[in-house]
Simulated assay, not measured.
Amino acid sequence: RMSSSAEATNVLLGKSDSLHQEVLSSFPLCDLTEEDLIENPQFCKLLAILAQHVDQSGLTVPLKTELDKAEQKLQSQRRQWLRFESLYRSLQEMVQDQRVRKHHATFCETMERCLLVAQCVRQLDPSSTTNPDQPSVLGLSPEHVMELMPSEKNVQRMKQSVPQQLEKHLKDKSLSLLSYYQPDWESESEGLKVMKLSHLSAQLDKDKKRAASLQEHNKENTVLLQRQSQLYLTELTKCIQLLQTLILHHRLTVQTDLDKKKLEYFEGKCELVLQKIKTEMLEIQLETYTPDTIAAHKKMREKLECEQKACKAEKQSVELKLASFEILGKEFQALAEEYCRLRQEMEVKSWAVKEFTHYNK
């Protein structure tokens, strides 16, 4: 067996083109891509070997066989349980229908009583898993409850009527199910309904298989969508990285041109603001003064500017002289102060002489 599986593996590994697809189809539940298998060839070979021993769900062949046998046994027991359970529920439904219709027939009363007694006996009868020495409920035993069974005559009569009544109840319920499944068939005749009812099981089985197929197809589409989404995100990430590279590469050139345009824009805007300020100043002058006044102000301004220049030049010459005087030291400063005092006295005496002369005349 090992040699045959090894040969099959070698054959599979020989087809490198289809190996990746075979592995991906053998393990659909694994989140793998063809790029992962190409980057990890040893792991790909390991998965190819495992595919010879396990199925798509990951179970080995012997375990899968045992699981199928256990599943068949479980289904058989489940069908048997469902058979008795459906019969029991159908009988209960018949009793409930009689109660709702308020039709107290001896048949239904006997059947209801039999069902209650059977249920109580089942509750009181210890199973193989319980302790037989455990005290029963209220000290009752199944024999005590069996005494409450109806008379044998009524029970026999009820058993004779059960098949006919049960058949009628199941038929009405099946027709109701048919009307629910296909509301358009409700207005048809009873014979046609019965004929279509015989094909309802096959139709339901067909719809069930179709739903299972659609569910499986939906699962495959989900896996495919996940792979495509992952591939799309990978390509989108590459595009974003490329876009970032282009932006970083061309940002300096574009930024230089943009800064130049901004500088020209701000220069033009600044010039426009200056011209607007000048215009506002001229408008204020025109609104405040007449043209003759403005011309006179200009002449006064020119004269004052000339005098200001002359004063500045005189100030500079005096400062130069003062600086040259300061070089001579403190002795020259005392002589300069004495000179200033004498000059002031001379000016005062000159003024007094002029005034005296003017007064004598």
Rank of each mutant, 00 (worst) to 15 (best):
M158K: 00
H169N: 09
S128M: 09
A202K: 09
K171D: 13
Y88F: 15
S229L: 11
C306Q: 09
N218A: 08
Q80M: 13
T256G: 01
K309V: 07
K361I: 00
Q80K: 14
E319N: 12
S198G: 09
E143I: 03
K315M: 04
K349L: 15
S90Y: 05
L322W: 03
K298Q: 06
D55Q: 06
Q164M: 08
L204N: 01
K298S: 05
T357A: 10
T237A: 10
S189Q: 03
G58K: 10
I247N: 12
F332A: 15
Q92P: 00
Y181L: 06
K219A: 12
A6C: 08
S90W: 09
L263A: 15
T106Q: 15
H53S: 09
E302Y: 01
L59K: 09
M111S: 01
A323D: 07
V137T: 10
L175E: 13
L63P: 00
V273Y: 14
E314R: 07
Q164S: 12
P41C: 15
F27S: 04
L19A: 02
K219Q: 14
H53Y: 06
Q52M: 07
T357F: 02
Y232L: 14
L286E: 10
E190H: 05
A51I: 01
K276E: 14
L140F: 03
A323H: 09
K303A: 06
H358M: 14
S187C: 04
T106M: 13
Q164L: 10
D125G: 04
T60Q: 11
R251W: 08
T110A: 06
P150Y: 02
V348S: 12
V145I: 15
R227I: 12
C311F: 09
M149R: 10
H217G: 07
P183V: 03
H144W: 05
C44Q: 01
K330F: 03
R157I: 02
Y339M: 02
E307M: 05
R1N: 11
P135F: 01
P150C: 03
E186V: 06
E34G: 02
M146N: 12
N221W: 14
K193E: 04
C44D: 00
L63S: 12
D17M: 04
S18N: 06
C120Q: 15
M111T: 04
V11Y: 04
Q230T: 05
L47D: 00
C306V: 07
L335A: 11
L140M: 02
E147H: 08
Q316L: 06
F43N: 03
T253M: 03
I327E: 12
F107T: 00
L24E: 02
S4C: 06
H103F: 10
S141M: 05
P135H: 03
D133L: 10
E326P: 01
M149Q: 03
S25Y: 03
L236C: 03
